[in-house]
Design a protein around this nucleic acid. Structure first.
Length: 490
RNA sequence: CGGGGCGUAGCUUAGCCCGGUAGAGCGCCUGCUUCGGGAGCAGGAGGUCGGAGGUUCGAAUCCUCUCGCCCCGACCA
């Protein structure tokens, strides 16, 4: 068997495995422009399902979609000091249009705070105009030096929520609410467990008061920041003159929040679940949940089996037990000239959660043969009541993926690390999340990053903290101000 | 931008050191036999050897320049 049919294994070279998987599962491909990628239908289908689920959740929490322009006057970016410092180095700038030099260059948005709060300022006069709860689905451009399919590309797709409130507390509640929405989505749909928490000063968003994030652990034990939610305070409101008259007639600056998740989550999905045979996609996000493969020898068998396969497909697709709008997503792979085994490998590479085989023996027994993508467990399923059984199996797969990923994360989380030497050993060896005390000094973060490449991923929310809070700083031995999570990150 | 690899058919690559008819595997097309874990046989299509210049009777191969890609680092969702 030719080696080029197999992926590089995760154990051999995680990075090569990831790249090969993305290309071979036809999720994405390199484009002619360095650092940009084409998202192919298999990958875009996952993104579309992510969008739909998130969009429903945003609407359910009172947000409306809008769309703001791609081009932002360069001067806008400069109005908030932290913001320009953070983003100016990585912007693409348009200097010419229609064959002429522009009077003012236009920045291709790296994020849209500036233009959105400029517009909000036009729309808000009174406290009665607040809150504004808005979201947009858009592409943004950040001129990154080193890129990686889905994880970091020059251009990427995301959503950015932007809100304006009358009070700090309301903005803070919104910031936390949306972080919770992200967590619910990541765990419920991507089956990717996350630790939520607050970013340190050095890791927070440029221009924010506070940044919260969802941190996931990939199979190489590195952390992936999968989503962020920012309490922007009044920083942008002051920069863009976003003011309102409050109930007592006083003028006040609004309080803003912004929050975003991107196509990077597709990379997170891949690196959370997949194996050396290819993609493992959680059923709820899989464009195709079930593939049916007819198996036959003679022409006579073929006719019967293929017909039965299409009947089963129709029966599954017509089933409304999951709700009328959430039908089972099923296809039949009746291609001729390709042996069943070859089809198995192909669908496994592409991550279809459940395979059903239908052959003469199954027809005789009134059953179909099922094979799970995640565990590769196989079992016969009776034809009677098949839709409910399939739906149940898919739910089991979804739940098992989350459980397995959570168990893996916990197995690679270290909670009783008290010496810096021990910490270094972990970071040089297996890696993972290290929960430890920190004295709150940014210089310590910088030193540890320099020496081990690990950074503070977050100050975890209470539910993630250790039963016994660490009392001393991992590095200096001084009293700890926070328990933090250290890890190498993407 | 620094370090390390690499550009030969759609993909993976041999050939390069030592210049002399561009080869293989996979994939693709046609036909027959196959079909419950990557099928076999027969026939076939597919190449400006990344690009430009130079050396030479002759360059995939030697020299110079150049473009691009991947990996590692600094930066980041």
């Amino acid at each position: 068997m030719a080696d080029d049919k197999k992926l590089t294994t995760r154990a051999d070279d995680f990075s090569a495995w990831y790249n090969e998987l993305v290309l071979r599962a036809e999720l994405a491909d390199y484009s002619p422009v360095k650092g940009s990628m084409v998202i192919r239908p298999n990958g875009y289908g996952i993104w579309e399902r992510m969008q739909r689920a998130l969009d429903d959740m945003f609407k359910a929490t009172g947000h409306q979609n809008a769309y703001f322009p791609l081009f932002i006057p360069q001067s806008f970016l400069q109005k908030e000091a932290q913001h320009v410092e953070g983003f100016a180095p990585e912007t693409a700038v348009v200097t010419h249009g229609g064959g002429k030099a522009l009077e003012e260059p236009l920045v291709v948005r790296p994020t849209s705070e500036t233009i959105i709060y400029h517009m909000f300022a036009k729309w808000v006069q009174s406290y009665r105009d607040l809150p504004i709860l808005m979201n947009q689905w858009a592409n943004v451009v950040r001129w990154e030096m080193r890129t990686r399919l889905f994880l970091r590309t020059l251009e990427f797709l995301w959503q950015e929520g932007h809100t304006a409130h009358a009070t700090h507390d309301e903005a803070e509640a919104e910031t936390r609410r949306m972080l919770g929405v992200y967590r619910e989505f990541m765990e419920g749909w991507i089956a990717m467990p996350v630790v939520t928490g607050q970013k340190t000063e050095s890791e927070k968003f440029a221009g924010a008061l506070r940044t919260y994030s969802c941190e996931a652990m990939m199979q190489d034990n590195k952390a992936l920041q999968a989503g962020t939610s920012h309490n922007l305070g009044q920083n942008f409101a002051k920069a863009f003159d976003l003011k309102f008259q409050d109930e007592s007639g006083e003028m006040a600056f609004a309080w803003n929040t912004s929050w975003g998740v991107s196509t990077r989550m597709v990379g997170g999905l891949i690196m959370t679940h997949s194996d050396d045979n290819g993609l493992i996609c959680p059923p709820r996000l899989a464009p195709v949940e079930v593939v049916l493969i007819p198996i036959y020898k003679s022409d006579d068998e073929k006719a019967r089996v293929v017909e039965a396969a299409y009947q089963v497909r129709d029966e599954l697709a017509a089933w409304t037990g999951r709700g009328a709008t959430d039908r089972l997503r099923v296809t039949v792979d009746a291609r001729e000239g390709i042996k069943p085994g070859a089809k198995y490998y192909e669908h496994e590479m592409r991550g279809i959660p459940l395979r059903l085989e239908i052959g003469p023996k199954d027809l005789e027994k009134g059953s179909v043969f099922s094979a799970r993508r995640d565990t590769r467990a196989k079992a016969a399923l009776p034809m009677a009541g098949l839709p409910a059984a399939v739906a149940g199996l898919l739910e089991t797969i979804q739940a098992d993926l989350l459980a397995a990923a959570t168990a893996r994360r916990e197995a690679n989380s270290h909670r009783n690390v008290t010496s810096y030497a021990q910490f270094k050993e972990i970071m040089e060896g297996p890696g993972g999340f290290v929960y430890a005390g920190w004295n709150g000094d940014p210089a310590v973060e910088a030193k540890v990053k320099e020496e081990t490449k690990a950074t503070i991923r977050c100050i975890p929310d209470p539910e993630f903290r250790s039963a016994q809070a660490p009392t001393t700083c991992l590095v200096t031995g001084e009293p700890a101000r926070h328990e933090v999570i250290w890890a190498k990150a993407y």
